[in-house]
Write a protein that binds this DNA or RNA. Structure first.
Length: 202
DNA sequence: ATGACGATTTACT
DNA sequence: GTAAATCGTCATA
């Protein structure tokens, strides 16, 4: 039986957490008991009040981003572009609003159900979870999960696949996607992926 | 009360 | 490569 990651795993600096999450398994249990899971293969770190690309830039604290201010190990799920959800895992501690965006998974369990959730555009397995909104659609994650404690939730959590973070040479690093509005923060190397993995977003 | 804008995806030229 | 889809949220007034 695979072990769930505990609070202390998440209470680290966002860059460290973004790297440590690579290769671990995100699990979603549907109400009918169906188990959906995938290995985390791509992440982005958001550094909090100083990070102009983060929703908490400048200390912004609103109804929408409130859960980013929770303790490490909570989910921050937001709705954007009028149609998409994206999921983050909060890092560090309460009132330190940093987080890691889950950008892509390599599906491992429940692929049939994921395909049903994703619909016609998901022609191949690599179309299922190769982008932050695709992950949420495939795993049926919406604002209902915003603020959920993933250290105790029965429906959404992370399982430990490996005890140590991947070695640096196995991790690709580059600028974050879709944050061109954030000036110099747009080019900082805060996106991480498993080098060579086919399920990373394009 | 109003308007501008997305931590995206998809389809189309 | 470009553009449409689509609406909750927040800043401004």
């Amino acid at each position: 039986m695979m072990q769930r990651l505990a609070r202390s795993f998440f209470q680290r600096e966002p860059v460290v957490l973004a790297r440590a999450l690579l290769g671990q398994q995100l699990v979603r249990i549907l109400d009918d008991g169906t188990r959906l899971a995938g290995l985390i293969v791509e992440t982005e770190a958001y550094l909090g009040v100083i990070d102009l690309a983060a929703h908490t830039a400048g200390g912004r604290r609103t109804l929408r981003n409130a859960s980013m201010w929770l303790d490490g190990g909570h989910a921050y799920v937001y709705f954007t572009y009028g149609m998409h959800h994206c999921m983050n895992i909060v890092a560090q501690v309460q009132d330190e609003p940093t987080a890691v965006l889950i950008r892509a998974l390599e599906p491992t369990e429940g692929l049939t159900q994921m395909k049903a959730h994703r619909g016609a555009p998901a022609k191949r397995d690599r179309d299922l979870c190769s982008g932050p909104a695709k992950v949420c659609q495939a795993l049926a994650i919406d604002r209902q999960f915003d603020g959920v404690n993933i250290c105790s939730s029965e429906k959404l959590f992370v399982e430990q696949v490996r005890r140590r973070s991947l070695p640096g040479e196995a991790i690709g690093v580059g600028p974050r996607i879709g944050v061109d509005y954030s000036g110099e923060w747009a080019s900082k190397p805060l996106r991480f992926w498993i080098a060579g993995n086919e399920h990373v977003s394009k």
